[in-house]
Design a binder for these strands. Sequence first.
RNA 1: GGCGCCAUAGCCAAGCGGUAAGGCAGAGGUCUGCAAAACCUUCAUCCCCGGUCCGAUUCCGGGUGGCGCCUCCA
Length: 463
Amino acid sequence: MQIYNTMTRKKEELVPLVPGQISMYACGPTVYNYFHIGNARPFIVFDTLRRYLEYRGYHVRFVQNFTDIDDKMIRRANEEGTTVKELGERFIKEYYQDADALGVRRATVNPRATEHINEIIRLVQTLIEKGHAYATPDGDVYFSVRSFPGYGKLSGQNIDDLENGARVDPDEAKRDPLDFALWKAEKPGEPSWDSPWGKGRPGWHIECSAMSMSILGETFDIHGGGQDLIFPHHENEIAQSEAATGRPFARYWMHNGYINVDNQKMSKSLGNFFTVREIAQEFDLEAVRMFMLCVQYRNPVNFSRELIQQAESALERLHTAKERLAEAQTAPAETEEDAAFSAQLDEFKTRFCDAMDDDLNTADALGVLFDFARSSNTFVSEPRGKATLEKARALYGELTGVLGLLQHEKSEEFPREALTLLEERQTARKAKNFSRADAIRDELKDMGYAVEDTANGPKLKKL
RNA sequence: GGCGCCAUAGCCAAGCGGUAAGGCAGAGGUCUGCAAAACCUUCAUCCCCGGUCCGAUUCCGGGUGGCGCCUCCA
Protein backbone atom coordinates (compact mmCIF):
# COMPACT_ATOMS: atom_id res chain seq x y z
CA MET A 1 0.00 0.00 0.00
CA GLN A 2 1.17 3.49 -0.84
CA ILE A 3 0.63 6.31 1.60
CA TYR A 4 1.52 9.95 1.34
CA ASN A 5 4.17 10.81 3.89
CA THR A 6 4.14 14.45 4.90
CA MET A 7 7.78 14.14 5.93
CA THR A 8 9.00 13.31 2.44
CA ARG A 9 6.05 14.87 0.60
CA LYS A 10 5.73 11.77 -1.50
CA LYS A 11 3.65 8.66 -1.68
CA GLU A 12 5.67 5.80 -0.24
CA GLU A 13 5.20 2.09 0.07
CA LEU A 14 4.05 1.33 3.58
CA VAL A 15 6.59 -1.09 5.01
CA PRO A 16 5.92 -1.79 8.67
CA LEU A 17 8.67 -1.85 11.25
CA VAL A 18 7.58 -5.32 12.28
CA PRO A 19 6.28 -7.46 9.42
CA GLY A 20 2.59 -8.09 9.69
CA GLN A 21 2.07 -5.40 12.32
CA ILE A 22 1.23 -1.74 12.19
CA SER A 23 1.58 0.62 15.10
CA MET A 24 -0.23 3.91 14.66
CA TYR A 25 -1.01 6.96 16.72
CA ALA A 26 -3.52 9.69 15.99
CA CYS A 27 -3.97 12.87 17.97
CA GLY A 28 -7.32 12.74 19.68
CA PRO A 29 -9.62 15.39 21.08
CA THR A 30 -9.17 17.78 23.93
CA VAL A 31 -12.18 16.79 25.96
CA TYR A 32 -13.55 20.16 26.99
CA ASN A 33 -16.54 20.26 24.68
CA TYR A 34 -18.45 18.38 22.00
CA PHE A 35 -16.35 17.86 18.93
CA HIS A 36 -17.27 19.41 15.61
CA ILE A 37 -17.49 18.12 12.06
CA GLY A 38 -13.96 19.25 11.33
CA ASN A 39 -12.63 17.33 14.31
CA ALA A 40 -14.53 14.30 13.10
CA ARG A 41 -12.56 13.98 9.88
CA PRO A 42 -9.35 12.53 11.34
CA PHE A 43 -11.36 10.20 13.55
CA ILE A 44 -13.10 8.81 10.49
CA VAL A 45 -10.03 8.83 8.27
CA PHE A 46 -7.76 6.98 10.66
CA ASP A 47 -10.50 4.61 11.67
CA THR A 48 -10.91 3.77 8.00
CA LEU A 49 -7.18 3.31 7.58
CA ARG A 50 -7.13 1.03 10.59
CA ARG A 51 -10.04 -1.01 9.25
CA TYR A 52 -8.40 -1.36 5.86
CA LEU A 53 -5.05 -2.39 7.30
CA GLU A 54 -6.78 -5.03 9.38
CA TYR A 55 -8.69 -6.17 6.31
CA ARG A 56 -5.35 -6.63 4.58
CA GLY A 57 -4.27 -8.87 7.41
CA TYR A 58 -2.16 -6.58 9.55
CA HIS A 59 -2.29 -6.74 13.28
CA VAL A 60 -2.90 -3.09 14.08
CA ARG A 61 -2.20 -1.38 17.35
CA PHE A 62 -4.02 1.92 17.13
CA VAL A 63 -3.63 4.57 19.81
CA GLN A 64 -5.69 7.72 20.00
CA ASN A 65 -5.29 9.91 23.05
CA PHE A 66 -7.54 12.15 25.06
CA THR A 67 -5.99 15.45 26.07
CA ASP A 68 -7.62 15.96 29.43
CA ILE A 69 -5.40 18.65 30.90
CA ASP A 70 -4.59 21.97 29.23
CA ASP A 71 -5.54 25.66 29.26
CA LYS A 72 -8.86 25.11 27.55
CA MET A 73 -9.82 22.36 29.97
CA ILE A 74 -9.01 24.57 32.92
CA ARG A 75 -10.86 27.57 31.58
CA ARG A 76 -13.91 25.56 30.70
CA ALA A 77 -13.99 23.80 34.04
CA ASN A 78 -13.93 27.14 35.79
CA GLU A 79 -16.75 28.44 33.63
CA GLU A 80 -18.81 25.38 34.36
CA GLY A 81 -18.00 25.42 38.03
CA THR A 82 -16.67 21.91 37.85
CA THR A 83 -13.29 20.23 38.11
CA VAL A 84 -11.02 19.48 35.20
CA LYS A 85 -11.32 15.80 36.02
CA GLU A 86 -15.10 15.79 35.95
CA LEU A 87 -15.16 17.83 32.78
CA GLY A 88 -12.86 15.31 31.13
CA GLU A 89 -14.92 12.34 32.26
CA ARG A 90 -18.04 13.90 30.90
CA PHE A 91 -16.72 14.79 27.46
CA ILE A 92 -14.93 11.50 27.03
CA LYS A 93 -18.35 9.91 27.36
CA GLU A 94 -19.80 12.40 24.92
CA TYR A 95 -16.93 11.69 22.55
CA TYR A 96 -17.73 8.00 22.52
CA GLN A 97 -21.39 8.64 21.90
CA ASP A 98 -20.69 10.69 18.77
CA ALA A 99 -17.78 8.58 17.58
CA ASP A 100 -19.85 5.41 17.89
CA ALA A 101 -22.61 6.95 15.83
CA LEU A 102 -20.05 7.92 13.19
CA GLY A 103 -19.02 4.28 12.96
CA VAL A 104 -15.63 4.98 14.52
CA ARG A 105 -14.39 1.87 16.26
CA ARG A 106 -12.74 2.11 19.63
CA ALA A 107 -8.99 2.44 19.36
CA THR A 108 -6.81 -0.30 20.79
CA VAL A 109 -5.90 2.15 23.54
CA ASN A 110 -7.29 5.58 24.37
CA PRO A 111 -4.71 6.91 26.83
CA ARG A 112 -5.39 10.04 28.85
CA ALA A 113 -2.69 12.59 29.45
CA THR A 114 -3.39 12.68 33.18
CA GLU A 115 -2.74 8.97 33.40
CA HIS A 116 0.73 9.38 31.93
CA ILE A 117 2.16 12.11 34.11
CA ASN A 118 5.01 9.89 35.27
CA GLU A 119 6.10 9.08 31.74
CA ILE A 120 5.87 12.75 30.86
CA ILE A 121 8.06 13.75 33.80
CA ARG A 122 10.62 11.10 32.94
CA LEU A 123 10.75 12.28 29.36
CA VAL A 124 11.24 15.90 30.42
CA GLN A 125 13.98 14.83 32.79
CA THR A 126 15.78 12.97 30.06
CA LEU A 127 15.61 16.03 27.85
CA ILE A 128 17.11 18.19 30.60
CA GLU A 129 19.86 15.66 31.23
CA LYS A 130 20.74 15.58 27.55
CA GLY A 131 20.84 19.34 27.35
CA HIS A 132 17.75 19.76 25.20
CA ALA A 133 15.62 21.38 27.85
CA TYR A 134 16.02 23.73 30.77
CA ALA A 135 14.05 24.68 33.83
CA THR A 136 13.44 28.31 34.76
CA PRO A 137 13.54 29.61 38.32
CA ASP A 138 9.73 29.77 38.27
CA GLY A 139 9.48 26.04 37.70
CA ASP A 140 8.65 26.03 33.99
CA VAL A 141 10.59 23.75 31.70
CA TYR A 142 11.24 24.63 28.06
CA PHE A 143 12.51 22.66 25.13
CA SER A 144 15.49 24.28 23.48
CA VAL A 145 14.58 24.25 19.82
CA ARG A 146 18.05 25.16 18.58
CA SER A 147 19.50 22.16 20.36
CA PHE A 148 17.71 19.88 17.90
CA PRO A 149 19.27 20.18 14.44
CA GLY A 150 16.35 18.59 12.60
CA TYR A 151 13.82 21.14 13.77
CA GLY A 152 11.56 22.13 10.87
CA LYS A 153 11.99 18.96 8.85
CA LEU A 154 8.33 17.99 8.92
CA SER A 155 6.82 21.38 8.16
CA GLY A 156 9.57 22.43 5.76
CA GLN A 157 10.22 25.47 7.87
CA ASN A 158 13.59 27.10 8.15
CA ILE A 159 14.42 27.78 11.76
CA ASP A 160 15.54 31.35 11.08
CA ASP A 161 12.38 32.17 9.17
CA LEU A 162 10.42 30.88 12.08
CA GLU A 163 12.44 33.01 14.41
CA ASN A 164 11.41 36.15 12.55
CA GLY A 165 7.75 35.41 12.90
CA ALA A 166 7.84 34.05 16.42
CA ARG A 167 5.82 35.72 19.08
CA VAL A 168 7.25 36.40 22.44
CA ASP A 169 5.11 36.39 25.52
CA PRO A 170 6.79 38.77 27.95
CA ASP A 171 5.81 36.57 30.89
CA GLU A 172 7.85 33.70 29.64
CA ALA A 173 11.44 33.25 30.64
CA LYS A 174 12.44 31.53 27.43
CA ARG A 175 16.02 31.63 26.27
CA ASP A 176 14.83 31.65 22.68
CA PRO A 177 11.48 32.78 21.30
CA LEU A 178 11.02 29.44 19.52
CA ASP A 179 11.38 27.37 22.68
CA PHE A 180 8.17 25.79 23.85
CA ALA A 181 6.88 24.63 27.22
CA LEU A 182 7.31 21.03 28.31
CA TRP A 183 6.15 21.66 31.84
CA LYS A 184 4.19 24.58 33.23
CA ALA A 185 4.54 25.66 36.83
CA GLU A 186 1.38 25.60 38.90
CA LYS A 187 -0.85 28.63 38.97
CA PRO A 188 -3.41 29.17 41.72
CA GLY A 189 -6.53 27.08 41.27
CA GLU A 190 -5.07 24.83 38.61
CA PRO A 191 -4.64 21.08 38.85
CA SER A 192 -1.02 20.14 39.41
CA TRP A 193 1.31 17.25 39.95
CA ASP A 194 4.56 17.02 41.87
CA SER A 195 7.69 17.11 39.78
CA PRO A 196 11.42 17.70 40.20
CA TRP A 197 10.71 21.33 39.21
CA GLY A 198 7.94 21.83 41.70
CA LYS A 199 4.21 21.47 41.23
CA GLY A 200 2.93 21.89 37.74
CA ARG A 201 1.35 20.31 34.71
CA PRO A 202 2.53 19.08 31.32
CA GLY A 203 2.62 21.12 28.14
CA TRP A 204 0.51 19.91 25.26
CA HIS A 205 3.17 18.65 22.88
CA ILE A 206 4.98 16.45 25.38
CA GLU A 207 1.80 14.53 26.21
CA CYS A 208 1.58 12.97 22.78
CA SER A 209 5.28 12.06 22.73
CA ALA A 210 5.05 10.40 26.12
CA MET A 211 1.84 8.53 25.41
CA SER A 212 2.76 7.33 21.96
CA MET A 213 6.23 6.15 22.90
CA SER A 214 5.21 4.51 26.14
CA ILE A 215 2.54 2.46 24.39
CA LEU A 216 3.97 1.93 20.91
CA GLY A 217 7.70 2.22 21.52
CA GLU A 218 10.29 4.83 20.64
CA THR A 219 9.82 4.24 16.94
CA PHE A 220 6.46 3.34 15.47
CA ASP A 221 4.89 3.24 12.04
CA ILE A 222 2.26 5.88 11.47
CA HIS A 223 1.45 9.15 13.18
CA GLY A 224 -1.62 10.99 12.00
CA GLY A 225 -3.67 14.07 12.59
CA GLY A 226 -5.13 17.13 10.93
CA GLN A 227 -2.96 19.32 8.76
CA ASP A 228 -3.16 22.08 11.33
CA LEU A 229 -1.10 19.93 13.67
CA ILE A 230 1.91 19.74 11.37
CA PHE A 231 3.28 22.90 12.87
CA PRO A 232 4.00 23.29 15.66
CA HIS A 233 2.51 20.24 17.35
CA HIS A 234 3.99 17.42 15.31
CA GLU A 235 7.21 19.28 14.66
CA ASN A 236 7.60 19.63 18.40
CA GLU A 237 6.75 16.00 19.03
CA ILE A 238 9.52 14.96 16.67
CA ALA A 239 12.02 17.29 18.31
CA GLN A 240 11.24 16.13 21.84
CA SER A 241 11.04 12.47 21.04
CA GLU A 242 14.06 12.16 18.82
CA ALA A 243 16.15 14.41 21.04
CA ALA A 244 15.30 12.19 23.99
CA THR A 245 15.78 8.80 22.39
CA GLY A 246 18.25 9.49 19.62
CA ARG A 247 16.08 7.35 17.38
CA PRO A 248 13.53 8.05 14.67
CA PHE A 249 10.05 8.77 16.03
CA ALA A 250 7.15 8.09 13.65
CA ARG A 251 8.11 6.57 10.29
CA TYR A 252 5.14 7.86 8.28
CA TRP A 253 3.27 11.07 8.88
CA MET A 254 -0.27 11.31 7.58
CA HIS A 255 -2.36 14.47 7.65
CA ASN A 256 -5.95 14.93 6.64
CA GLY A 257 -7.26 18.07 4.94
CA TYR A 258 -9.73 20.44 6.49
CA ILE A 259 -13.45 20.58 6.50
CA ASN A 260 -14.39 24.00 5.19
CA VAL A 261 -17.47 26.14 5.44
CA ASP A 262 -17.84 28.46 2.45
CA ASN A 263 -14.23 27.64 1.55
CA GLN A 264 -12.93 28.58 4.95
CA LYS A 265 -11.55 26.20 7.47
CA MET A 266 -14.11 25.12 10.02
CA SER A 267 -12.64 26.07 13.35
CA LYS A 268 -13.50 26.97 16.86
CA SER A 269 -11.86 30.36 16.61
CA LEU A 270 -13.74 31.38 13.46
CA GLY A 271 -16.94 30.20 15.06
CA ASN A 272 -18.11 28.64 11.78
CA PHE A 273 -18.38 25.15 13.18
CA PHE A 274 -21.15 22.62 13.55
CA THR A 275 -20.86 20.09 16.31
CA VAL A 276 -21.43 16.50 15.42
CA ARG A 277 -24.03 16.44 18.16
CA GLU A 278 -26.15 19.11 16.51
CA ILE A 279 -25.91 17.53 13.07
CA ALA A 280 -27.00 14.26 14.64
CA GLN A 281 -30.35 15.84 15.37
CA GLU A 282 -30.98 16.27 11.66
CA PHE A 283 -29.16 13.35 10.07
CA ASP A 284 -28.10 9.81 10.68
CA LEU A 285 -24.39 10.27 11.32
CA GLU A 286 -23.67 7.50 8.88
CA ALA A 287 -24.42 10.12 6.22
CA VAL A 288 -21.68 12.29 7.71
CA ARG A 289 -19.24 9.42 7.43
CA MET A 290 -20.33 8.86 3.85
CA PHE A 291 -19.88 12.55 3.13
CA MET A 292 -16.30 12.40 4.37
CA LEU A 293 -15.44 9.24 2.48
CA CYS A 294 -16.62 10.73 -0.80
CA VAL A 295 -13.40 12.75 -0.82
CA GLN A 296 -9.81 11.59 -0.67
CA TYR A 297 -8.64 12.39 2.84
CA ARG A 298 -5.93 14.90 1.96
CA ASN A 299 -8.25 17.16 0.00
CA PRO A 300 -10.24 19.90 1.64
CA VAL A 301 -13.99 19.47 1.59
CA ASN A 302 -16.76 21.94 2.04
CA PHE A 303 -19.42 21.20 4.57
CA SER A 304 -23.07 22.01 4.01
CA ARG A 305 -26.38 20.40 4.83
CA GLU A 306 -27.06 20.02 1.14
CA LEU A 307 -23.92 17.92 0.74
CA ILE A 308 -24.90 15.75 3.68
CA GLN A 309 -28.22 15.19 1.97
CA GLN A 310 -26.45 14.16 -1.22
CA ALA A 311 -24.39 11.72 0.79
CA GLU A 312 -27.54 10.45 2.47
CA SER A 313 -29.17 9.72 -0.88
CA ALA A 314 -26.07 7.98 -2.15
CA LEU A 315 -25.90 5.92 1.02
CA GLU A 316 -29.52 4.92 0.59
CA ARG A 317 -28.58 3.34 -2.70
CA LEU A 318 -25.92 1.27 -0.99
CA HIS A 319 -28.41 0.21 1.68
CA THR A 320 -31.01 -0.81 -0.88
CA ALA A 321 -28.53 -2.94 -2.77
CA LYS A 322 -27.61 -4.71 0.44
CA GLU A 323 -31.25 -5.45 1.21
CA ARG A 324 -31.97 -6.71 -2.28
CA LEU A 325 -28.98 -8.97 -2.10
CA ALA A 326 -30.08 -10.26 1.28
CA GLU A 327 -33.56 -10.99 0.01
CA ALA A 328 -32.54 -12.49 -3.31
CA GLN A 329 -34.25 -15.71 -4.35
CA THR A 330 -32.17 -18.86 -4.55
CA ALA A 331 -32.14 -20.93 -7.74
CA PRO A 332 -31.86 -24.75 -7.64
CA ALA A 333 -28.44 -24.79 -9.30
CA GLU A 334 -25.46 -22.63 -10.19
CA THR A 335 -25.41 -21.44 -13.80
CA GLU A 336 -22.93 -19.85 -16.15
CA GLU A 337 -24.33 -16.48 -15.22
CA ASP A 338 -23.48 -17.19 -11.62
CA ALA A 339 -19.94 -18.02 -12.65
CA ALA A 340 -19.70 -14.80 -14.64
CA PHE A 341 -20.97 -12.73 -11.74
CA SER A 342 -18.61 -14.51 -9.39
CA ALA A 343 -15.72 -13.49 -11.61
CA GLN A 344 -17.00 -9.93 -11.54
CA LEU A 345 -16.98 -10.05 -7.77
CA ASP A 346 -13.30 -10.85 -7.81
CA GLU A 347 -12.74 -7.82 -9.99
CA PHE A 348 -14.65 -5.57 -7.62
CA LYS A 349 -12.50 -6.73 -4.78
CA THR A 350 -9.31 -6.12 -6.73
CA ARG A 351 -10.42 -2.68 -7.87
CA PHE A 352 -11.52 -1.76 -4.37
CA CYS A 353 -8.17 -2.74 -2.91
CA ASP A 354 -6.28 -0.97 -5.69
CA ALA A 355 -8.11 2.22 -4.80
CA MET A 356 -7.48 1.86 -1.09
CA ASP A 357 -3.86 0.90 -1.71
CA ASP A 358 -3.41 4.23 -3.43
CA ASP A 359 -3.16 6.41 -0.36
CA LEU A 360 -6.58 5.44 0.93
CA ASN A 361 -8.56 6.66 -2.05
CA THR A 362 -11.98 6.14 -0.53
CA ALA A 363 -13.69 8.19 -3.25
CA ASP A 364 -12.45 5.77 -5.88
CA ALA A 365 -13.26 2.80 -3.68
CA LEU A 366 -16.81 4.05 -3.31
CA GLY A 367 -17.05 4.20 -7.08
CA VAL A 368 -16.28 0.49 -7.12
CA LEU A 369 -18.95 -0.12 -4.52
CA PHE A 370 -21.55 1.66 -6.64
CA ASP A 371 -20.57 -0.45 -9.62
CA PHE A 372 -20.95 -3.47 -7.37
CA ALA A 373 -24.39 -2.28 -6.29
CA ARG A 374 -25.57 -1.81 -9.86
CA SER A 375 -24.35 -5.22 -11.02
CA SER A 376 -25.76 -6.85 -7.96
CA ASN A 377 -29.14 -5.17 -8.34
CA THR A 378 -29.37 -6.50 -11.85
CA PHE A 379 -28.07 -9.92 -10.90
CA VAL A 380 -30.65 -10.51 -8.18
CA SER A 381 -33.59 -9.64 -10.40
CA GLU A 382 -34.04 -13.39 -10.78
CA PRO A 383 -33.22 -16.44 -8.65
CA ARG A 384 -29.51 -17.22 -8.45
CA GLY A 385 -27.15 -19.92 -7.25
CA LYS A 386 -26.80 -20.14 -3.52
CA ALA A 387 -23.01 -20.19 -3.40
CA THR A 388 -22.70 -17.15 -5.64
CA LEU A 389 -25.25 -15.20 -3.65
CA GLU A 390 -23.43 -15.99 -0.47
CA LYS A 391 -20.14 -14.95 -1.95
CA ALA A 392 -21.68 -11.68 -3.08
CA ARG A 393 -23.24 -11.00 0.30
CA ALA A 394 -20.00 -11.72 2.09
CA LEU A 395 -17.94 -9.50 -0.19
CA TYR A 396 -20.43 -6.67 -0.09
CA GLY A 397 -20.44 -6.83 3.67
CA GLU A 398 -16.64 -6.92 3.82
CA LEU A 399 -16.06 -3.96 1.54
CA THR A 400 -18.73 -1.72 3.01
CA GLY A 401 -17.41 -2.78 6.41
CA VAL A 402 -13.90 -1.62 5.54
CA LEU A 403 -15.36 1.83 4.99
CA GLY A 404 -17.34 1.52 8.19
CA LEU A 405 -20.61 1.83 6.29
CA LEU A 406 -23.83 -0.18 6.54
CA GLN A 407 -22.77 -1.41 9.95
CA HIS A 408 -26.12 -1.04 11.59
CA GLU A 409 -29.44 -2.21 10.27
CA LYS A 410 -31.91 0.53 9.68
CA SER A 411 -34.41 0.09 12.46
CA GLU A 412 -37.01 -2.28 11.10
CA GLU A 413 -39.36 -2.01 13.99
CA PHE A 414 -42.59 -0.45 12.90
CA PRO A 415 -45.49 0.41 15.16
CA ARG A 416 -48.40 -2.03 15.13
CA GLU A 417 -50.61 0.77 13.89
CA ALA A 418 -48.54 1.18 10.74
CA LEU A 419 -48.41 -2.54 10.08
CA THR A 420 -52.17 -2.79 10.43
CA LEU A 421 -52.60 -0.02 7.90
CA LEU A 422 -50.22 -1.78 5.57
CA GLU A 423 -52.32 -4.92 5.73
CA GLU A 424 -55.50 -2.95 5.14
CA ARG A 425 -53.95 -1.37 2.11
CA GLN A 426 -52.98 -4.75 0.74
CA THR A 427 -56.55 -5.97 1.20
CA ALA A 428 -57.86 -2.91 -0.59
CA ARG A 429 -55.43 -3.44 -3.43
CA LYS A 430 -56.51 -7.02 -3.89
CA ALA A 431 -60.08 -5.79 -4.05
CA LYS A 432 -58.93 -3.24 -6.66
CA ASN A 433 -59.98 -0.48 -4.32
CA PHE A 434 -57.06 1.67 -5.34
CA SER A 435 -58.35 4.96 -4.05
CA ARG A 436 -58.58 3.45 -0.59
CA ALA A 437 -55.10 1.94 -0.99
CA ASP A 438 -53.64 5.30 -1.99
CA ALA A 439 -55.37 7.03 0.88
CA ILE A 440 -53.73 4.61 3.28
CA ARG A 441 -50.38 5.21 1.65
CA ASP A 442 -50.81 8.93 2.22
CA GLU A 443 -51.74 8.25 5.80
CA LEU A 444 -48.59 6.18 6.30
CA LYS A 445 -46.58 8.89 4.67
CA ASP A 446 -47.88 11.35 7.22
CA MET A 447 -46.74 8.93 9.90
CA GLY A 448 -43.29 8.98 8.36
CA TYR A 449 -43.29 5.74 6.42
CA ALA A 450 -43.03 5.04 2.72
CA VAL A 451 -44.60 1.98 1.15
CA GLU A 452 -42.84 -0.05 -1.49
CA ASP A 453 -44.50 -2.93 -3.30
CA THR A 454 -41.79 -5.48 -3.94
CA ALA A 455 -41.78 -8.98 -5.36
CA ASN A 456 -41.85 -10.18 -1.77
CA GLY A 457 -44.91 -8.13 -0.94
CA PRO A 458 -45.32 -4.61 0.38
CA LYS A 459 -42.66 -3.14 2.61
CA LEU A 460 -42.49 -0.19 4.94
CA LYS A 461 -39.58 2.15 4.95
CA LYS A 462 -38.72 4.95 7.31
CA LEU A 463 -38.67 8.31 5.61
C1' G B 1 7.95 37.73 4.12
C1' G B 2 8.80 31.94 4.64
C1' C B 3 6.44 27.07 3.66
C1' G B 4 2.40 24.54 1.21
C1' C B 5 -2.33 23.07 -1.12
C1' C B 6 -6.32 23.50 -4.68
C1' A B 7 -9.03 24.82 -9.70
C1' U B 8 -12.70 18.48 -13.71
C1' A B 9 -20.56 18.72 -15.68
C1' G B 10 -26.19 22.19 -12.09
C1' C B 11 -23.86 20.08 -7.20
C1' C B 12 -20.10 16.55 -5.02
C1' A B 13 -15.89 13.90 -6.75
C1' A B 14 -12.08 10.06 -8.99
C1' G B 15 -8.52 10.01 -12.81
C1' C B 16 -2.99 12.63 -13.66
C1' G B 17 0.74 11.37 -20.76
C1' G B 18 -3.12 8.23 -25.27
C1' U B 19 -9.10 11.70 -26.47
C1' A B 20 -12.93 12.02 -19.01
C1' A B 21 -14.96 6.50 -12.81
C1' G B 22 -18.81 7.01 -9.51
C1' G B 23 -22.73 9.62 -6.69
C1' C B 24 -26.64 13.52 -6.15
C1' A B 25 -29.97 16.40 -9.09
C1' G B 26 -32.40 16.58 -14.20
C1' A B 27 -34.52 14.37 -18.90
C1' G B 28 -36.59 10.05 -21.65
C1' G B 29 -37.89 4.88 -21.23
C1' U B 30 -38.91 -0.34 -18.91
C1' C B 31 -41.41 -2.42 -14.74
C1' U B 32 -45.84 -1.02 -11.46
C1' G B 33 -53.22 -0.42 -10.72
C1' C B 34 -50.55 4.24 -9.51
C1' A B 35 -46.19 5.08 -6.96
C1' A B 36 -41.51 3.79 -4.77
C1' A B 37 -37.24 0.93 -5.54
C1' A B 38 -34.59 -1.24 -9.43
C1' C B 39 -32.93 -1.40 -14.52
C1' C B 40 -31.81 0.94 -19.53
C1' U B 41 -30.66 5.54 -22.19
C1' U B 42 -29.13 10.57 -21.78
C1' C B 43 -26.13 14.84 -19.44
C1' A B 44 -18.13 17.64 -19.58
C1' U B 45 -13.36 18.01 -23.23
C1' C B 46 -11.04 19.11 -17.61
C1' C B 47 -9.62 28.13 -15.11
C1' C B 48 -6.35 31.13 -18.85
C1' C B 49 -1.65 31.73 -21.81
C1' G B 50 2.80 29.66 -23.38
C1' G B 51 6.25 25.27 -23.71
C1' U B 52 7.77 19.85 -24.06
C1' C B 53 5.77 15.61 -26.73
C1' C B 54 3.37 11.95 -32.34
C1' G B 55 -0.18 13.04 -28.39
C1' A B 56 -1.59 16.85 -22.11
C1' U B 57 -7.08 17.38 -18.05
C1' U B 58 -2.56 14.75 -16.76
C1' C B 59 4.54 17.17 -17.29
C1' C B 60 7.22 22.28 -17.23
C1' G B 61 6.90 27.84 -17.03
C1' G B 62 3.84 32.11 -16.41
C1' G B 63 -0.88 34.11 -15.15
C1' U B 64 -5.82 34.41 -12.73
C1' G B 65 -8.86 32.84 -8.81
C1' G B 66 -9.55 30.23 -4.02
C1' C B 67 -7.44 28.23 0.61
C1' G B 68 -4.09 26.76 4.58
C1' C B 69 0.23 26.74 8.13
C1' C B 70 3.95 30.02 10.26
C1' U B 71 -0.34 31.68 17.34
C1' C B 72 -4.73 27.56 20.44
C1' C B 73 -6.90 24.58 16.52
C1' A B 74 -8.37 17.99 13.58
